[in-house]
Simulated assay, not measured.
Amino acid sequence: MAYMDLSQAFAGGAALATAQPAAETPSTGFSGIEWTVIGLAAKDSLASLGEPGRLSRALGGLFGLGASSKLADPRLEALRQTAVQAWHHGYLLPASEIGRFIAAGFSLDQFETLLASISRRRQTRRKRITA
């Protein structure tokens, strides 16, 4: 069985995980669990951001489909939602998303770090696909 080392997956993730205790992160960095949430958000669809409708809930209950991808921790859920939008839209995020991100306890520097990291990862993926 293979395992993916997510601490190495993003720019700065491994350095931050080893240089800072989990409870303390610099204003521009993220903890290891936060980098993991950002990485996992790449696989979430934009539909995961909204509440499921009545039909979706009914079919999910009937067939066991449509498990929620929302996180229990509100701060991490805000990070996941911002990361999902960044993975799909890059730098073209609504201004309300910045406000929600900051209201969750993150800084504007962290927002910029998030967008820059995801942008680099998106460019790397495009290069691999076109090559």
Rank of each mutant, 00 (worst) to 15 (best):
L16R: 15
L62V: 12
A17P: 00
D44H: 07
L92D: 14
F63I: 06
A83S: 15
A72H: 05
I118H: 05
E24G: 08
G39Q: 06
L92K: 10
L40N: 06
A58P: 00
A83K: 05
A83M: 09
V84Q: 05
R122F: 01
R80F: 11
I38L: 01
A131P: 02
I38F: 02
I33C: 07
M4F: 11
G60A: 02
A104V: 02
R126P: 01
L6G: 11
P21L: 03
G39Y: 05
R122M: 06
A83H: 04
L71R: 12
T82F: 02
D109A: 15
Q20E: 12
G66D: 10
E77M: 05
A95Y: 04
Q85A: 12
S107M: 07
A103Y: 00
G32C: 06
K43A: 10
A41V: 08
R100K: 15
F106A: 07
L6E: 14
R128P: 02
M1E: 10
E77C: 06
L79D: 03
A131Q: 08
W87A: 10
E112A: 14
T113V: 08
S27C: 04
D44L: 06
F111M: 12
G90P: 13
S7K: 12
S119Q: 04
T82V: 10
S7Y: 05
I129V: 13
W35D: 09
L108M: 12
E34C: 07
T28M: 08
F30M: 05
A83N: 09
T25Q: 12
P21E: 04
R126W: 03
T130N: 06
S68Q: 13
A14E: 15
H88G: 13
R80Y: 10
T130L: 05
L92C: 08
I102H: 07
H89G: 06
E77A: 05
H89M: 08
G61C: 01
F101N: 10
L108T: 14
R57H: 01
A72Y: 00
Y3Q: 14
I33A: 14
L59E: 10
A42R: 15
G90H: 01
T28K: 06
L46E: 08
D109W: 00
A86Y: 02
S96N: 11
A95M: 04
A42G: 14
E112Q: 13
L55N: 02
L6W: 14
L71A: 13
T28P: 00
E51W: 00
Q8F: 04
A17C: 07
A17Q: 07
R121S: 14
L6S: 14
